[in-house]
Structures are given as C-alpha cells and as structure tokens.
C-alpha cells in the first residue's frame, strides 16, 4: 500500500472556542491578568524568610503535638464545640423541615413559598463567620451565639436541599396518593416522606460534619468552641498546642465522616 499520496500534516481542530481571534484574545487576557495580579502582590520577602523558620517550628509542633499543657482549655473548648454542633444541628433540622416543605413549589401556595425561599436565600448568602459576628454583637460572647449561628446556617443548607428534593420527587406517586382522597398531611406522610427521608438523614449527618468544622472557625470572632482555644494558642505562638488541636479536629472529622458513611449505607 502506498501512503505517499496522503498529506503529511494534520492539526487538531479547536474543541471549545472555534474562532481563532477569540482564542488569541482570551489567552492574551489571561496572561495580562496573571501579570497584573501577581504584580499587585506586595510580599515582604524578609518577613517571609523569618516566617519560614517559624513554619518549621509549626511543622515540628504538628509532628510532636502537646496535648497536656493546655489540656483544660482544649477539653472545655472541645466540649463547647461538640455540644454546640449537636444542639445546633438538631434545632436546625427541626426548623428546616417545615421551611423546606414550605419552599417546595408543588406542595405549598405561592406566598408561603416565597417567604420560605427568601429565608433560605438570606441564610445561604451570608457566611457563617459574618452571621457569627452579628450574633455575638447581639447575644454576647460564648457558645450560645455559636449555637444560633450554626442553627441558622443549617436551616439554609438543609431546607434548600430538602425543598429541591421534594420538587424532584416523583409526582406520579404524589398524584396516586392524592387520588385516594388523602388529606394534605396524609400526602406528606405517605408520598413525600418515604421518598425524601433517606436522603434527609444522609444530609443531616453531612451537615453535622460541616457544623463541627465550622464550630472550629466561629470561635475566632468570639462565638465559643475549639476555635477560640486554637486562636489563643496561635496568638501565643504555642505551636505544639495548636498542632494538638488541629490533629484532634482532623481525627474527629475523619471519624464522623466514616460513621456517617456507614449510617448512610445502612439507611439506603
């Protein structure tokens, strides 16, 4: 077979942006942006090089954590975090269920739907830490403000997913139950609950996990929990205690991820 008559060249045609001008413009724009962005960084390299030595100490602290010398602070911070996590998740779930049902278009009248959806939107668009700042200003320092923050964030998270789930839930099942002459409550109980419940349990566990991680953060602005302890440890340059706290957080997250994985498998 003679291959000599065939072309010796082939170029891969562009896959996403077909117009060559646009492609060039986009890559130029990307380069210009990177140059500008990196150029506007003001890095004090002297400070960084001093910091590297500190970084080394932190890594050492992480490898040789000190659980003992700040034990009391760690224990009280941890108990605040854990209790805050549990109570806020439970309260959050309890409130998010009616709001989630209210925010499902196929179940509720329009005005209720709009009110519930806007509660969700407010809760979702504000970061936990910003909510915490306000709640600390209103309710004073301590885990109670943290509890309220996490509960509020849970509502936005769970109610949204629950509402989307209900809207996606099979409408034929809904109609079948409605056709038997069931009341609104019976409809929720027989058509919606069985379809949505397993996922709700899974999501609740997932949120429990998130709430614990967040509880480690909101302490920075005074809402109690392990975050406050960590903040103090870092401020005092006690990297071995900080390392210990971080390892505890990682361990708890790992355990809870593992457990919630098991529970989710068991529920579904």
């Amino acid at each position: 077979m003679s291959a000599l008559n065939y072309p010796r060249h082939w170029k891969r045609p562009p896959q996403i942006i077909h117009h060559p001008g646009w492609r060039r413009a986009l890559s130029v724009a990307a380069v210009v942006y990177l140059v500008l962005a990196i150029g506007s960084l003001e890095v004090d390299w002297q400070r960084v090089s001093i910091g590297l030595e500190r970084g080394q100490r932190f890594v050492m602290g992480f490898l040789q954590p000190d659980f003992v010398s700040r034990q009391r602070d760690i224990v009280s911070g941890l108990s605040e975090s854990l209790t805050m996590t549990l109570t806020s998740t439970v309260v959050g779930i309890l409130i998010s269920i009616p709001i989630g049902i209210g925010a499902a278009r196929n179940l509720t009248p329009r005005p209720v739907y709009l009110i519930c959806r806007s509660i969700i939107a407010v809760s979702r668009s504000l970061q936990e830490i910003i909510i915490a700042i306000f709640l600390v200003a209103m309710f004073g320092f301590g885990p109670f403000a943290g509890f309220l923050t996490l509960a509020f964030a849970t509502i936005g998270f769970l109610a949204k997913l629950l509402a989307d789930d209900i809207e996606e839930a099979s409408s034929t099942q809904l109609e079948a139950i409605r056709a038997t002459g069931a009341s609104w409550w019976q409809m929720i109980n027989y058509a919606v609950e069985p379809q949505v419940l397993p996922r709700l349990i899974g999501l609740s566990l997932y949120r429990l996990d998130i709430n614990f991680r967040e509880s480690a953060v909101i302490g920075i602005v005074g809402a109690g929990g392990i975050g406050a302890t960590l903040n103090t440890a870092i401020d005092r340059y006690e990297y071995d205690s900080a390392g210990a706290i971080l390892l505890i957080i990682i361990a708890i997250v790992m355990v809870s991820e593992y457990v919630s994985g098991l529970v989710r498998k068991w529920v579904q």
């Binding site: 072309p7 010796r8 082939w10």
Partner: peptide
C-alpha cells in the same frame, strides 16, 4: 506526530 505516521493514518 512524524509526517510518515500521519500519512499512514490518512491511508
């Protein structure tokens, strides 16, 4: 790819 490879592929 080398020219011969591309020719072979076209063939």
């Amino acid at each position: 790819f080398p020219g011969e490879d591309i020719q072979r592929a076209w063939a």
